[in-house]
């Protein structure tokens, strides 16, 4: 099955790329690494009139220390670069772990940080061939007014299945978005809309350019755990990222717990922070935190495994992610 026809545009700068995207008003696309988008093109989930070469964005491939001691990562940085980066490993381990869990090595060689953050939401009734989809009425995400996953569902709950975003939210990351009329920096949490039909805030003309992570102190630990059926390839069926900072007494100063792949956006569990901060970790505390995460996770039946199983696994993954973090493996 060939790709749909489109023009190929090669802007010379990021600004020119933004202008083209703006003029295209949704009909021009950026490929990034293309590992997900090419598949969406082939199944005609997108039929852009033109595709922009990523050459103009190649300046966005970097991982470096920021002036405030934090980390900045260009959107075109590959996941392979992320997993091998000593800068990431040293203080932001949860991100490296999450990167290693994505797809398989040849995918990580080309897939980018920006592409992963901008992944479209997924649903087993949506990520199908054109022939398959045409056999039933269009769902919300396709512009129709039904949901095939949930009987009488009233909105789209397609799942955001990126591995990096939960880790980055746990690290308190922000993203820099470049547009025609300038740029802005917003917390990554605000990047996601929670709407399955349109999972992020990018408008035509916007390009996610950079991820900025606040500085990490020496006693910050992180852990990422992913539910998958195979040792590779799979998108997360649920994901849990945690970042924990302890003080000299071993008590928790800061903690963020974020769930992935159970909703249209990464889902933070603020109750976990409330429970953890000021405490030392005990089994019963861990149990309570896992319960809070379980309460918050409300996956629906739109992936290849049962929703109640995914929900139960959140409890398990939370314990493991925190365990991995505090054991120093993180």
């Amino acid at each position: 099955m060939q790709l749909p026809r489109f023009d190929f545009l090669q802007p010379r700068s990021l600004q020119e790329a933004c202008s083209i995207l703006r003029e295209g008003n949704g009909k021009v696309s950026v490929l990034a690494g293309g590992t997900a988008f090419m598949v969406a093109l082939r199944s005609r989930l997108h039929t852009p009139s033109a595709v922009i070469s990523t050459k103009a964005l190649s300046e966005l491939s970097y991982i470096r220390e920021a002036s405030d001691g934090g980390l900045v990562i260009g959107a075109m940085t590959t996941l392979e670069a992320l997993e091998n980066s000593p800068l990431v490993a040293n203080g932001y381990a949860v991100l490296g772990q999450a990167a290693r869990f994505v797809g398989v090595p040849p995918i990580r060689h080309v897939a980018t940080v920006g592409g992963n953050l901008c992944l479209d939401t997924r649903c087993i009734f949506y990520n199908q061939s054109e022939f398959w989809r045409k056999a039933r009425p269009d769902c919300f995400k396709l512009g129709g007014d039904v949901c095939h996953a949930i009987d009488k569902g009233r909105r789209c709950l397609a799942v955001y299945q990126g591995d990096l975003a939960p880790a980055l939210v746990a690290l308190g990351a922000r993203v820099r978005i470049v547009g025609v009329s300038g740029e802005k920096v917003i917390p990554l949490t605000q990047f996601y809309t929670g709407n399955g039909e349109k999972p992020n805030v990018l408008e035509p003309g916007d390009i996610l350019a950079e991820v900025q992570i606040p500085p990490s102190s020496g006693n910050t630990w992180g852990g990422y755990e992913k539910l998958r059926v195979r040792e590779g390839m799979d998108f997360p069926l649920a994901g849990v990222a945690v970042s924990i900072k302890t003080n000299a007494n071993g008590a928790i100063d800061q903690a963020r717990l974020v769930l992935g792949a159970v909703a249209p956006s990464p889902l933070e569990v603020p109750e976990a922070t409330e429970l953890l901060v000021g405490q030392k970790l005990t089994d019963s505390l861990l149990e309570s935190v896992a319960q809070k995460a379980y309460d918050r996770a409300r996956p629906v039946a739109n992936l290849a495994v049962d929703a109640s199983y995914r929900r139960k696994m959140v409890r398990v993954l939370v314990k493991r992610a925190i365990g991995r973090a505090v054991s120093g493996n993180g």
Binding site: R230, D234, A304
Partner: peptide
Amino acid sequence: NFLDYWFPLSTD
């Protein structure tokens, strides 16, 4: 498709 039909990998 090979994403949702779980063909075992070399790591499995």
